[in-house]
Amino acid sequence: MRNLMAFIVGGFFGAGLLISGMTNTQKVQGWLDVFGDWDPTLAFVMGGAILPMAVAWRFTLGRKPVLRDHFDALPDPTVGRKLVVGSVLFGIGWGLAGLCPGPAIASLSFGGSGGIVFLIAMLLGMYWAPKLRTALD
């Protein structure tokens, strides 16, 4: 049942990314292009996504998930070197291609060979990350 829900969640997530234009790399790069032809769409997407999530977080207080006996433990709140270095590296890749992990998967069926190359490179990066993470400790 949790797996079926996860499939539905993934479907909503993918449909949302598609409808919002976030599988269009030019819209993402347009958001980052503050000194060029700036496109504010991403702010609307973020705002639209944060609203239901903010309500959901409030709703978790004093409750349990419907299909599980506890919520995921929240991460250590420390803002450290790994958070900053990782986010900068991610931002560089995001700016270069205009794709982040969600849209990279959502657009795989119609993104052509470039989309496949991006996904394989991203998976390789994710495979190497634990070694680099240890080096930053």
């Binding site: 909503f12 949302g16 819209k27 496109d39 504010p40 769409t41 959901a56």
Partner: peptide, 24 residues
């Protein structure tokens, strides 16, 4: 595009809300 962004964003947020509240 902004309206589609908002609507798509709401769908993404609803997906995240379901995953949190149902699957934890």
């Amino acid at each position: 595009d902004w309206i589609m962004g908002l609507l798509g964003g709401l769908l993404i947020g609803i997906a995240g809300a379901i995953f949190l509240l149902v699957n934890g």
